[in-house]
Design a protein around this nucleic acid. Structure first.
Lengths: 253, 253
DNA sequence: CGCCAAATTGAACGGGGTCAAACTAGGTGG
DNA sequence: CCACCTAGTTTGACCCCGTTCAATTTGGCG
């Protein structure tokens, strides 16, 4: 299921590229230029030392990387592909708390046990670090620590948006928010404007938005009828009226 | 509404006490001892330099400290009292994303504008830092930055729990989770075991749990009928069957 | 082409919302 | 000290959005 590759591969320190790319590309449009540059300058030397600590792990689609409740000796950085992060209730109800892509970190929360599960949504590659050496290096590298704080803060802000969505938005508002947020999350696959790839299946969208697959499907149909979107396949759609969609997402109706 | 006190008061650097207290007291029970010690050792000298940057601000109950969308020149640390953090939709729907108490930081996400609002729930005191000098100091003090990362990671973990609650839990499960989480959040007012202070009103509980005040009230009544809790006043209750409540919170049953 | 998981559509139900009324409590002034 | 007043809470009746259960259609892949 999980296959560790040769350490030799590590020399090229794949996480370096991932980290830097992500920091420079998306997300930071709302940060001041200053924050951006701090991301960028997380010196190559530090990142390379980080790379030297990494084990590269390849995941097949559907492979479980992290199981909630297991001891948590590792921190991960995604270098290719995408993962879903979720929490379960004993009866099987699932809440997906996020989709992660190349460049994202996982398991930073310092806790003896993982507090969420994570699975590959497609064939993916991650770098794995033992927590001890990882923290030690981070502690000695202010730019690294700064980058982690910066990212974690952004994730927290995203989490607060998701709380608003889950607690107070209607089904159509949730879907609209989702469709507008989705592109630009995968730095390795920039999408044409207006085109939205839905790499996940309906069940995952539902569990991310706090809905059921039936409601997801019905809402998409309603959106098509209203002319807000059009679909080519179940995994690809086109936003026909972005402004209208944005209004729904913002709860303006 | 907002009254800045004499800078002289700052000399005693009240945030120092707050920071250290909180780090040592709650929260970290699930961190390894190492993490704890890192919190604790966020050297007094660094914290004092932080204190020198602070302006002390007193807030009356209900005062708005932060308004979503406003320019965001400051970072805050709460030294006394409690705040609610929330996001609004244009039609007035509100999602409270968290309650903050003495020792908590606000506004760390580096963004040009605040992405949430914050109000005092009672008479409170906060320390205010200009973002520039604050980040500069933090960047020069690895222990400080580490503490911030540590806290932010924990907040993120809490946010993920809240997403599970908002997306997948029933009304009674939400309330049970809330009642069990609430105590131990205010380090300045430790509560007797089994006793839960509800300093907020029903509307705030509702907006935190993604429910309405009527449902909050009905669920509390149902809990009383079931013998799970008993109430002395609307703002104080006693958990009669903690194990049963815990089961509800976990979604067993 | 045929298979089967995934997605869509339909019909009926129900948890929680909405609207409205009754009740409490805690603060105020006489 | 108590009667009053009002914000806050509780309770009741009804309704609706999203769920549940079930049947049908689609489409990706051998």
């Amino acid at each position: 299921m999980i296959i560790a590759l040769e350490p030799s591969l590590v020399q090229r320190s794949p996480p370096v590229a991932a980290c830097v790319d992500r920091a420079q590309s998306s997300d930071c449009s709302n940060c001041g230029a200053r924050a951006l540059s701090v991301c960028g300058t997380a010196d190559i030397s530090d990142l390379q030392r980080l790379g030297e600590l990494a084990e590269v792990i390849k995941l097949k689609s559907g492979a479980v990387l992290i199981r909630e409740g297991d001891p948590a000796p590792h921190v991960f950085n995604i270098t290719a592909g995408s993962l879903r992060v979720y929490k379960l209730l004993p009866d099987g109800r699932r809440q997906i708390t996020g989709f992660l892509f190349a460049g994202d970190f996982l398991g930073l929360a310092i806790s003896e046990f993982y507090v969420f599960s994570a699975e590959a949504m497609e064939a993916s590659t991650v770098c794995r670090f033992r927590k001890g050496p990882f923290s030690a290096l981070v502690a000695r590298s202010p730019p690294l620590e700064h980058m982690l704080l910066h990212r974690t803060s952004h994730e927290l802000a995203a989490a607060q948006n998701q709380m608003l969505l889950l607690g107070r938005k209607t089904a159509i508002e949730r879907m609209a928010s989702f469709l507008l947020d989705l592109p630009g999350h995968d730095p390795t696959r920039p999408s044409a404007p207006g085109h939205v790839r839905l790499p996940m299946k309906r069940a995952e969208i539902a569990d991310y938005l706090g809905l059921t697959i039936e409601t997801v499907s019905r809402v998409l149909t309603r959106m098509k009828v209203k002319g807000l979107i059009s679909t080519t396949s179940p995994h690809e759609l086109i936003v026909e009226r972005p402004e209208r969609l944005r209004q729904h997402a913002a709860g303006e109706v």
